[in-house]
Amino acid sequence: MNKEIKIQLTEISKVFYTDEIETHALRGINLSIYAGDYLTITGPSGCGKSTLLSILGLLDSPTSGKYIIEDEDVSSLTVDQRAVIRNKKIGFIFQAFNLIDELNIFDNVALPLRYRQPSLSAEETKERVLSCLEQVQMSHRANHSPNQVSGGQQQRVAIARALVGFPTMLLVDEPTGNLDSKNGDAVMDMLAELNENGTTICMVTHDPRYAGMAKTQLHLSDGVLLNDLELGETA
């Protein structure tokens, strides 16, 4: 069965310039991510994982190469145009959860919808937020503030926030890095369940155990995608 290509990177390079030194963080990356993929990127520290994730999440632009999301070339968009794509098509999950302490859990999850244009009605926002919180079993804590719940629960809230905008893909950066193994396992189970239900996931991790849970494992070394380890069904 042919799957729809959601993300396509072609010859993506990223060079950082500091004074007279050029640092090649990424060199000619070619990568296709299909609908329903569960992909992990592993590699040693400084290999370019974060840079690749930044480019995938439109938090950074490549020095050269082509980046297509759902048939739209996003390689050279303006800052604001990238913000719009990020809002609609990317869901972020960070190692440090990155919830806003001043907002309660409901408002944290609703945050991506606040920046969506055209804006959603209050009713629709509420419905979608509660549905996502239900999905991560955190609806009973909607009115609490993030610092009133555990780390594992905070990461579940972050997952709900990543899902609320119905993104094309979830970008997950070391999701278990700040969690104990029990909570880490629970989060990984949740991600696996989301993928089984059709969510496309791209995850950066150091942990080989969790990397193994993905359908596709990519290894990055010195900015080069060395090999594709096909562990499950791919197109």
Binding site: V79, A83, V84, R86, N87, F92, N98, I100, P112, Y115
Partner: peptide
């Protein structure tokens, strides 16, 4: 930074 990641424009 969180707001920017969630798609907030400048």
């Amino acid at each position: 930074a969180i707001q920017a990641a969630m798609g907030a424009k400048r």
